[in-house]
């Protein structure tokens, strides 16, 4: 049965690819492309209310994690909705896999996690995933197997028969992610994927995003949690008031070209002073030699990990405590 479905899916993808042959401009390495994409919201009488997106031109390549950054109202969600065909562009085009974003067949290869995990609260986790599996025309046996796999993957096996209305926000996000992955998509669109998750959940989500990228999938995420974007994204686009302000690789964009950082381990104090003198001799300015700090996230995760390994009271560093006093 599984091989039968695989064959059916391959057939469907083949059909899809064949349909793309009619589009001579289609480059299989470009998963998403927007051309002069503009969205204007109007009121009932057709009067312009707000220009949410202004002439957006960008490309998202196969196998990368692409982040859409921007403050509230900058057009991130509008872009995602335009890519999904939930909104129609006022002018310009949005192409996904070389097809118009309003084309239904493109959704065969897309997974979408909305901002608030808009799911049916009266369904259980199992029923939810089974329902979405049916929407992909998956046969019963494959669907059951896939549902079990995904529930295990997002760590909800213990709550799979509970209605979603009894779920916490974090659990809802997990089941939301599972529904986005039910069809093993090639392109995953994540709207604020870490919102509502605790630090462990956030880390797991980020790890999962990177794992998906490593599997060759393309991930597009929008978020205003800059640290999350920085941690996982290969490329980002920064939007402000509907306009594209910056686009490029995260590494390049964050590189401070006029500063130098030297890292080493167990450096004696004398050597540190020697280095400082060498730097002064060469005319270096704003010299700062100090021990690096870990992130709060790292600290928190280390404590949790440690606590899991050694349950019970944990010794708190007394020096720190007295310093505070």
């Amino acid at each position: 049965m599984a091989s039968e479905t695989k064959a059916a899916k391959e057939e469907s993808v083949k059909d899809f690819k064949k349909s793309l042959e009619t589009n001579p401009d289609y480059d299989p390495n470009i998963v998403v492309e927007t051309q002069n994409l503009t969205k204007v919201y109007r009121d009932f009488w057709g009067r312009q209310k707000v220009r949410a997106l202004k002439a957006l031109d960008m490309e998202i390549r196969k196998g990368e994690i692409f982040g859409l950054l921007g403050p509230n109202g900058s057009g991130k969600s509008t872009t995602i909705k335009l890519l999904l065909g939930l909104l129609f562009p006022t002018t310009g085009r949005a192409l996904v896999f070389g097809q118009d974003a309003t084309e239904v067949t493109k959704n065969e290869r897309i997974g979408y996690l909305p901002e608030e995990s808009y799911l049916y609260k009266f369904l259980t986790a199992e029923e939810t995933l089974d329902f979405y599996g049916r929407l992909f025309d998956m046969p019963g046996s494959v669907r059951r197997q896939r549902v079990a796999e995904l529930i295990e993957k997002v760590g909800l096996t213990w709550a799979k028969r509970r209605q979603l209305k009894e779920y916490s926000k974090g659990m809802t996000r997990r089941i939301g992610l599972a529904q986005a992955l039910v069809n093993d998509p090639d392109l995953i669109l994540l709207d604020e994927p870490t919102s509502g998750l605790d630090p462990i959940g956030t880390r797991e989500m980020k790890d999962m995003i990177i794992e998906l990228r490593d599997q060759g999938k393309t991930v597009v995420m929008c978020s205003h949690l800059l640290a999350d974007v920085q941690d996982v994204c290969d490329r980002i686009a920064i939007l402000y008031q509907g306009e594209l302000k910056e686009l490029g690789r995260v590494d390049n964009l964050l590189q401070v070209s006029d500063q130098t950082e030297i890292r080493t381990k167990d450096l004696p104090a004398e050597a540190e002073e020697e280095i400082r003198q060498v730097l002064v001799k060469h005319g270096a300015k704003d010299i700062s030699i100090e021990q690096p700090r870990t992130t709060l996230e790292e600290l928190f995760l280390n404590i949790v990990r440690e606590s899991e390994e050694r349950p019970g009271h944990r010794m708190i560093d007394q020096r720190e405590e007295s310093a505070k006093q």
């Binding site: 959704n107 909305p114 808009y118």
Partner: peptide, 13 residues
């Protein structure tokens, strides 16, 4: 409730 978002973003006609 926007639950329709998770349906129409699947290959549902």
């Amino acid at each position: 409730n926007k639950t329709i978002f998770t349906i129409v973003t699947k290959p549902v006609r």
